[in-house]
Write a protein that binds this DNA or RNA. Structure first.
Lengths: 208, 208
DNA sequence: TCAGATTTGTCCGTATGTATA
DNA sequence: CTATACATACGGACAAATCTG
């Protein structure tokens, strides 16, 4: 059933065709793609096969289907690969220490990245707060790196980290403000030190 | 159609159910999952909906279906993901820079982690080599952190990075040995400097 | 070798909910 | 309100591949 290309499955070919269609017509987020029946007719395949292809892309967050309306292209940056993969890869047997170390690595990496790029972080938002939730804080901090992929990965990892699921687990406002101050001063060593010694002190022993 | 949970779409619920099924029965790569008709009966949904769910997972490379045999759980080394997301997501320039920055962050993070834990990296393996492949080198380096999750994430990410897919892209043995020497001396600043300036020089401008 | 059962692959028909003109 | 277009979901039918006895 396959002369040269790999995809001997109809629905994979349809995925390819849809990709081509998006390419050739320069379609972007929000644009509508042909209806299931039209694709079915144009490509000479059954509607079920078209649906299988569309569903696959929908699960990935690449398209969005609305009943009674049609199928639309999503912003590809909102793809759900990390979430899906996380759900299947991370599920159970994941070593806690690996998880915590990785989260820690991302957080320190994000801090370093912000500093090296000279990005300033306004502290106003947190000064008003009485108690600061660590997860909210780092979500905001990593969001400031403008790296959505990194943010996605961090979010899915912290989903699975029990450490981050205790309610109100950290409230010491001063430490966070100190961290921000180091970042804004461009002092990477100090920032990492504050992070290691004050914020995630309990984790530093884990590595060994 | 939706009492409490979000997924008001049947095929998404089926994806969830399949995930649960894998979890609860401790199924792993190579194991078989129930046939489409059995799932259809057990979950009280149409076979078409089951197929939509299975296809979505198949596109992701999480399962594999063989005509006349059945459906099996895959190992995640099957890279169908690369082609799919590579084609869609990486069309965006922002997505590419996010990817490169994230890989870079993990690599520098791994280096820092090794140094902080005082881990020594034997250079013998690489001294014998004439040309060093960067991907193999960092695979080995990250493996030395003993963080398998981090390694897994890094591997998936580099699968997507075109940067890592040029054959024999980097051959300067001296630079890698210099990096190892810094790591073994425990000089984090020097190690990061070597990494940034010598190995991934072309990427440092990307952040801004 | 052969026959029958099982399973996926593909398509079709039908009914229904929803949005739009 | 009606008609049309679209997605949602179900189930039937047959083909093709595989396995079993």
């Amino acid at each position: 059933m396959n002369e040269s290309g790999y995809p001997s499955k109809i629905f994979l070919e349809i995925v390819e065709k849809i990709k081509q269609l998006i390419d050739e017509n320069h379609l972007g987020p929000g644009d509508k793609i042909p209806s299931e029946r039209e694709l079915s007719d144009r490509l000479k395949v059954g509607r079920s096969s078209v649906r299988e292809a569309l569903r696959s892309l929908e699960l990935l967050g690449l398209i969005e289907t609305k009943r009674g309306e049609g199928t639309y292209i999503c912003d590809f940056r909102n793809h759900r690969l990390v979430e899906i993969l996380g759900a299947f890869v991370l599920q159970s047997h994941q070593a806690r220490t690996d998880l915590e170390n990785t989260i820690q690595l991302i957080e320190t990496g994000a801090i370093a990245d912000l500093i090296r790029r000279g990005k300033k972080l306004p502290a106003e938002r947190w000064e008003a707060e009485e108690a600061i939730d660590q997860r909210l804080f780092f979500d905001w901090l990593i969001k400031n790196t403008d790296n959505r992929l990194l943010l996605k990965i961090w979010r899915i990892l912290t989903e699975y980290a029990p450490y981050y699921h205790r309610p109100e687990r950290r409230t010491d406002k001063a430490v966070f403000l100190q961290l921000l101050s180091c970042v804004n001063d461009g002092d990477e060593a100090a920032a990492v030190s504050v992070y290691k010694n004050k914020i995630n002190k309990c984790h530093t022993a884990v590595g060994k």
